[in-house]
Amino acid sequence: MNDRRKFLLGATAFALSGCEILDGAGKPDSLFRPVFGASEGLTHLAQRGLIGDALAPEYTEADIRQGQRPNGSTNPETAEYLALRDGGFRDYRLRVTGLVDRPLSLSLADLRQMPDRTQITRHDCVEGWSCIAKWRGTPLGLVLEQAMPRLAARYAVFHCFDVAERSLSGEVAYYESIDLMDAWHPQTLLAWEMNNKALPIANGAPLRLRLERQLGYKMAKYIHSIELTDTLGLLGQGQGSYWADRGYQWYAGI
């Protein structure tokens, strides 16, 4: 970089002289953490209050102008997943466990036999992009109805096949959770079809979550099982989802 550029950038940095003051705020022990926590609690509360049961906007066939952009994991490689994939997911069983009166084990055929819902919706990634696609699947609420959650159940936790992180301490499979208000919402689907075709592997086959009023990272792909719980403290590092444990908001309505 030449000197003039250095000077200009330096002068801008000086004029603003604030860009580094929050650099430490990302650390878990930062004094800003509780402040962010309070602000995010307020954001969560405000959205819950404003949104209520409202439906996410739905679009028409004419609005589907491209394929659904895959993001995050696009090709899980665990032995369990590969075996299921090679069998065309015929041996796949969605297990619903935890605080339920009737634990379930459902094949894709079982899910397809239940009443389904089709919706053309816009997928918003936390990065900033959007993509419109058509989704078909079984409303999560109907599955929960069969499983009969106990009164103590507050969250639905999604355990996934895809390994999101490999570290010295081992592999971390993707995990996500939603509260039961979102779980019972009519647009919350366990989707098995996208744009009139079986859900592609890149987009989460055999089963992925559609949670239309939140950002993309909430919509767990490659669902292994669903667990009903009364706390998120025991999951991962305690924030309730893979990305929430990495500084993102657990409630991702904005």
Binding site: G10, A13, L16, C19, E20, D23, G26, E40, E127
Partner: peptide
């Protein structure tokens, strides 16, 4: 020089 934090962090940028 023009972002908070100065390093790349979407998560922290959103919180701020």
């Amino acid at each position: 020089a023009l972002t908070v934090p100065s390093y790349q962090s979407l998560a922290l940028g959103r919180s701020v």
